[in-house]
Every structure is written in C-alpha cells, then in structure tokens.
C-alpha cells in the first residue's frame, strides 16, 4: 500500500509521457478516466467548465419552479413541486462534487456563479408567469435535459458519468409530473386548455435551444466527442427530442408552435423552422428576461446562508475541541 499518487506529474516528463499513453489507451478502449489518472490539461478544463455549468444550471433551475410552491393548486402538487426542487438541489450537489474531483473548490465555483463569470443553461432565464409553466418545464425542459443527459451517463470521466446515472434516475419523475400537469389542464376548461397551450408556445423553442448551437457552429463538439465526453451531436439530439415530442403532443392535444414541423420520409428526419439563434445569443449574453433576477436571488441566498455555514464550522470546531479535551 502506498499513498495515492500525486495528481500532478508536471515536473516529471517521463511520468507525463506514460500518463498520456495510458490516457489515450483508456479513451481508445472507451473505458473510464478516474480522478487520480493523468489527463490532458484541456480535458480537465473542459470537464470543469461543463460540469460546473451543469451544476449551476441545477441550482439556478430551482428558482423558476420554487416561484410556484406557495401557489400550487393543491397540497399534492405543492408536495410534488417541493420534492422536485429538492431533487434539483441534490443534482447540483452531485455535480459540484464531481467537479471538485478535478481540483476546483466549491467556493471558487460558487464565486464564479454569483459574480457572473460562469454560465448556466439559458433556459432558466425565462419567467414562469402561470401554473401551466410548471407543466411545460417538466415536459419540455426536463425532457430535453434527459435527452442530453442519458448519453452523459457514459461520459469518459468516471465521477461525471456516475453523477449522471443518479440524476437520470430521478429526472424521469420530473418529466412525467410535468406531462401530467399539462394533461390535466388540457382535460379542463377552455381557459385551462389555453393556459397549457400558451405555456407550450413559450417553452417549445427555448427547450430546443437547450441542445446548443447547430453542429457547424459548435466548435468544441468535435473535441468533446473525441474524448468520449459527448456521444451525439447537438443536432442529432435535437432531432431525437422532437421525434419524442410529436406523439406526446398528440396525446396531450397541444400544438407544437412550428408550422413547418413535418416528418421527412426521404431523409428520415423532421423538417422544422429555423431556430432564432439571436434570441439564444442574447439570453446567453445575460440579456434574457430573467438573468439579472436569477443572479440577484442566488447572491442573496448565498449571503443569507453565510451565518449557517459559519455556525456549522464553529460547532464542528468546538465539538473537536471537546473530544480532544475529553
């Protein structure tokens, strides 16, 4: 038995050479890279960026829904919504933990988020004005997230893949409860049906944007695919998602807001209208409908929780002192 090897072999070119060969071997064999393995600096950086953005998305993603906890139409729906928001917090924690194995601290990631230096999924910068938005978020936003996340369970970085397995298991309840909210509204009064359709109209396009820019404008995709972090291209995943939505929309009785949406038999894919990428860029750049509000709320929560973190640390220190004295 020896102590775990140093994460950094920067000072030892021979060890770095062996490490690189081992890394290439692991990737070629579609095996997994673990935290103590040597890895290229760019691989580490890419993962830190991707996993921390993903974690931030889960944490910020609590806000649009927690907005409705106090106004949920029944006690059952309130309990479900609370469970879902609690899940999002848990997902954020799994992902922050995975990112921490790459050598970045939780505090640094939190600082990046609240200082506006880190990104999170642009979808959470849209407001949730009606109860039907809880349905549309579950069905469309969580649906798109699942589509993106299932292949990530096989990401080459072990801790990331393991976090994703856990998240995907819990995520399917999120999508189903959203679908059920919409279904109940669609079986309700005319006003309720309109509310459901309006929410679908507002969330459909942003949920398609969640898969990221078109393949030819996604410069990092090729490298991520070569590293087995990403398994399918943005456009392929978007197609797969739309393919799932079409029959589900029929069951709901809602119309997907795209007049050009049609199955193309010759190409075995859906034809659809051009996505408004200017809107995507604007929201990503911080000029979406709720960017400022989301960050302000996150900062407040962080500041207001400072005394809890201090108290916990102080309590731990005192307990350690007492047990040392005993």
């Amino acid at each position: 038995m020896t102590a775990p090897a140093d994460l950094s072999v920067a000072g030892d070119p021979q060890a770095a050479e062996a490490g690189r060969a081992r890394f290439d071997e692991l990737i070629a064999a579609d095996s997994r890279v673990e935290p103590r393995d040597w890895m290229p600096e760019a691989y580490r950086k890419t993962l830190i960026r991707q996993i921390s953005q993903h974690a931030h998305s889960e944490i910020i993603g609590m806000q649009p829904e927690s907005n409705w906890i106090t106004r949920a139409p029944s006690l059952k729906r309130k309990a479900i919504l609370m469970a879902k928001v609690q899940d999002e917090a848990g997902h954020g924690l799994y992902l922050y933990s995975a990112a921490q194995t790459l050598g970045i601290s939780r505090d640094e990631m939190m600082a990046q988020l609240i200082e506006g230096r880190a990104r999170y999924s642009s979808i959470f910068n849209y407001p949730t004005p009606t109860w039907a938005d809880m349905g549309a978020i579950g069905w469309l936003v969580d649906g798109a997230a699942i589509c993106n996340q299932v292949p990530l369970c096989r990401a080459s970085y072990g801790p990331y893949g393991r976090a994703m397995v856990r998240i995907c298991k819990e995520e399917s309840f999120h999508q189903r409860q959203g679908f059920e909210i919409l279904l109940e509204l669609m079986q309700g009064t005319e006003a309720q049906r309109q509310m459901a359709q309006d929410a679908v109209d507002r969330w459909y396009w942003p949920s398609l944007m969640m898969f990221g820019p078109p393949d030819e404008q996604s410069p990092n995709s090729a490298q991520s695919m070569a590293w087995n972090i990403k398994r399918f291209s943005n456009d392929d995943l978007r197609q797969r998602f739309v393919g799932m939505l079409v029959p589900q929309a029929e069951v709901l009785g809602v119309t997907l807001p795209d007049p050009n949406l049609a199955w193309n038999e010759a190409e075995q894919r859906y034809d659809m209208s051009e996505i408004d990428w200017t809107e995507f860029e604007e929201v990503l750049a911080g000029r979406g409908p709720a960017n400022a509000e989301r960050l302000r709320r996150r900062r407040e929560a962080h500041d207001e929780g400072a005394w809890v973190r201090e108290a916990a640390a102080e309590y731990a220190r005192k307990q350690a002192e007492q047990s040392a004295a005993a």
Binding site: P35, S105, R106, D107, E108, P159
Partner: peptide, 15 residues
Amino acid sequence: MSTPGETGTEPWPLW
C-alpha cells in the same frame, strides 16, 4: 496528496 476533491482550498472536509 490526498483523496480527489480533498484540497487545501475546501473549508470543509470530504466524507
């Protein structure tokens, strides 16, 4: 070197 995720910059220990 310690366990992955256990860095000097983390205020709380890893479990």
